[in-house]
Design a protein around this nucleic acid. Sequence first.
DNA 1: CTGCATCCTTTCGGATACTG
DNA 2: CAGTATCCGAAAGGATGCAG
Lengths: 114, 114
Amino acid sequence: MSVRTKETCNKHIIPVRDALEVLGGRWKLQLLIHLSFGPRRFSQLAKELSPITDRTLSRELKSLEANKVITRTEYDAFPPVVEYKITPHGESLFAVISELGNWGRAHRKLIMDK
Amino acid sequence: MSVRTKETCNKHIIPVRDALEVLGGRWKLQLLIHLSFGPRRFSQLAKELSPITDRTLSRELKSLEANKVITRTEYDAFPPVVEYKITPHGESLFAVISELGNWGRAHRKLIMDK
DNA sequence: CTGCATCCTTTCGGATACTG
DNA sequence: CAGTATCCGAAAGGATGCAG
């Protein structure tokens, strides 16, 4: 049963695409890894991920926040203080990222060697 | 030891980016899933992945072939017959894809629900 | 300090037409 | 049948400047 129709294929593909969208692009992964070491402020991240631009950093952080893998906390102070922090849902991504990394290492070995 | 420098971070990030590059884009994942059911010819894939264009299908197949996750076999016949097939290295990707799918499902639940 | 507005470049993928 | 060549539009991402 369960013929391979476009619909049954999509049922497999859609969740994977969802995940790839959360991780996709040049910066989200790096952001996540840096935040895995602890909460960070905007300017800290800007420095650590240099040469990222403010605009891009802002956009990426919003995307991660919308996907609930990080939180944004604004403290009432002047000058402003904002802290970004990984959520449990974000932590759960690291198992997946680690698998991707393992495959990537095997892949690099296969492609580069010999 | 092992401070969190840009270099140590990159050591984690680069293999993951390698993996994401192999899977990235609109079509590679679908291609892989269709090929997981058995070898396919160019026109079969074109039909199954409709509305993909010939040009795009051709490009994506070349990319997967370059990454050694599929093979391309040309049979001497007229009209031409070409068969695409997943490699063992390609098969090993499905464990990763499955993990991505699991996370994606949990993610969708979290984002869509409530 | 945090971050948005505007503009610009680069990249990705699609449309159409054509070939061995 | 299995592609390639050329052209093009949409989208992602960067540079610069300004604001609360």
